[in-house]
């Protein structure tokens, strides 16, 4: 009882501290200087119709590289903690019906197509490598849940993941050599504004990020699922 009372007191105190900031929230009349510079210069400099993408991939490209590295570290940690021990193969404790299997198999290529569309058109429409990669991972997850596939080829998964990560850094270094700097996508021709093959290397970079993110998230899901299955067998 006294604990709950103290919690309410602490909540009220926090609200009293934060209330002046909410009441005096400044309303900006114009965009900040940096944002208006981005809006003025980005379409002409980079040729990408989606402004968010040109900021994420180019102006803040180093941050994106850092995010990919953080995701890789998280995946590696999950894989290390839920390491396969080798005695978990082949036994499933439920059996899925034929309708579920066929439905999953029918939806799978459509979801993959949608994910590929999202990251290939990252420079034209909302979305990009991260979103497309997650959609691809959910497509494979549907195959797992519907029971049409028992396990994925880990060699192919780690190969896709490490090769696309390597190629991402290689493209970034190519920008350093043939364009203005690290992660500069302008070493490829800029093309017509709004076409699929335009905006320099931005579609290439986003495709690589999409493949890498998809493989990494699928690795996390697969590691957790294997553990489930092993516990189910031993229990």
């Amino acid at each position: 009882m006294i604990k709950r009372f103290l919690a309410i007191i602490a909540l009220l105190g926090a609200a009293a501290v934060l209330l002046p900031f909410v009441l005096n929230l400044p309303t900006e009349e114009a965009l900040p200087e940096l944002a208006s510079k981005y809006i003025e210069n980005a379409p002409g400099e980079l040729g990408a119709a989606n402004l968010v993408t040109s900021i994420i991939v180019t102006y803040r490209g180093l941050d994106t590289l850092g995010e990919v590295a953080v995701l890789f570290a998280a995946t590696a940690a999950v894989g290390l903690l839920l390491k396969r021990t080798g005695n978990e193969v082949g036994v499933s404790h439920w059996k899925s019906s034929e309708i579920l299997k066929s439905g999953g198999g029918f939806l799978f290529p459509l979801i993959i197509l949608y994910g590929v569309y999202i990251f290939l058109h990252g420079h034209l429409t909302p979305g990009g490598g991260f979103q497309g990669g997650v959609v691809i991972a959910t497509g494979f997850l549907l195959l797992l849940l519907s029971g049409s596939v028992d396990s994925f080829n880990h060699t192919v998964m780690s190969l896709v993941e490490s090769l696309s990560g390597f190629a991402y850094v290689a493209v970034a270094l190519a920008g350093l050599i043939w364009a203005a700097g690290f992660l500069d996508p302008r070493f490829l021709p800029q093309g017509d504004f709004g076409r699929l093959f335009s905006a320099g290397a931005i579609p290439v970079i986003y495709s690589l990020i999409g493949l890498k993110v998809g493989a990494e998230l699928l690795g996390i899901l697969d590691a957790m699922r294997c553990k489930v299955r092993r516990e189910g067998v031993t229990a």
Binding site: V52, I118, P126, G127, G128, F130, Q131, V134, V135, A137, T138, L141, L217, I220, L221, M224, R225, V228
Partner: peptide, 22 residues
């Protein structure tokens, strides 16, 4: 829309499944 896509795909799909597996 970019943030919305990320939130829908990661927050409501993948995170839920990871929690259910755990």
């Amino acid at each position: 829309p970019d943030v919305a896509m990320t939130e829908a795909a990661i927050g409501s799909a993948l995170t839920t499944v990871v929690f259910l597996y755990a």
